[in-house]
Design a protein around this nucleic acid. Structure first.
Lengths: 163, 163
DNA sequence: TTATTCGTGGAATATTATTGCGTGAAAGGT
DNA sequence: ACCTTTCACGCAATAATATTCCACGAATAA
């Protein structure tokens, strides 16, 4: 197993990435001006970063409250048996549920999976748990926490460590 | 306390939002074609959704592995005293740390805060915990889980519930 | 020193976004 | 039932933006 290749990034690339993380809605011209480069090489660098896989995708972030989605829960889920089939089935099932924003397989004795789930209210949450999560084969433990305040909520990575 | 106003969205708006959630990199023309509308009203609708606050922002998502950020941890943090000052101080401190992608104040007896933290490796994680988290006044309990696999990782909301 | 490579900026071109305007459908008032 | 108002649409014109082409200069290697 080879280690994932890390693209070579110079200071300009990092400035581009930082700027795009700060504001994903920047036009190429704005970006170029912000990092002190003319538009053409800036555009070329962004394209290179995209095809190199450093830039994975663009996302449009919506306001859950504006859409009446007022409850976000973090769920810890533990499985009874740690077989590949159990895990594969759980993951395939959960992928079908649009309420699930995040599903991570994690270390730790408390839980096997951590989920982040968005629903309109606690009634829908109850239905989601009962009809969808607890019905999945192998789910033995479920513990919920509800988000009261989002102090930090971003997809930005710490670029200070890079290079 | 009034309830947050929910914008009136017709089927076309929802199709736009869904398409933009699926692919935040769509041009207006592509978006228009995809939802069966000509570019001009499509652009106008998107602008309206932005100024109404339904569309909050655009994000550029980077690949942590391409940047050598190979460890992502979910941390449960509990506080010794639940005073507003403790919380305010904790939140203000944590906001200064670029490693923290998410910080939520949550319900539940297990923890007060849930954090998602990105670092290069476990050595840096240890340093982050020791030098930054455990030094914050009032932090009494810290429990870490490390992400082994990202099954689902998106900011997309479930639009099926809307309307 | 000379040759090669590489990224840059400016100009030209291509693509995309936005605005103005006329039209028709639906809703509200009389 | 009629008229009026409102609203969103599409097309066309315009504006803005992105991308490609090309020549230049700096850095590196021979």
């Amino acid at each position: 197993m080879t280690k994932k290749k890390i693209a070579t990034l110079d200071r300009t690339d990092l400035k581009i990435l930082q700027a795009l993380q700060d504001d994903g809605g920047l036009t190429n011209q704005q970006l170029a001006e912000r990092i002190g480069l003319s538009p053409s090489p800036c555009s070329r660098r962004v394209q290179k970063l995209e095809s190199a896989g450093v830039i994975v995708r663009r996302e449009t972030v919506l306001d859950p409250r504006a859409l009446g989605l007022d409850l976000t829960a973090m769920i810890q889920i533990s499985m009874d048996r740690h077989t590949p089939e159990r895990f594969a089935n759980f993951e395939a099932t959960v992928k079908q549920y649009p309420e699930v924003q995040q599903c991570y397989l994690v270390t730790g004795q408390e839980a096997d999976y951590l989920l982040k789930v968005v629903v309109p209210d606690i009634d829908h949450y109850q239905q989601f748990l009962l009809n969808k999560i607890t019905r999945i084969e192998g789910v033995s433990g479920v513990q919920s926490s509800f988000i009261m305040r989002r102090v930090i909520d971003t997809t930005a990575l710490p670029l200070d460590y890079v290079e």
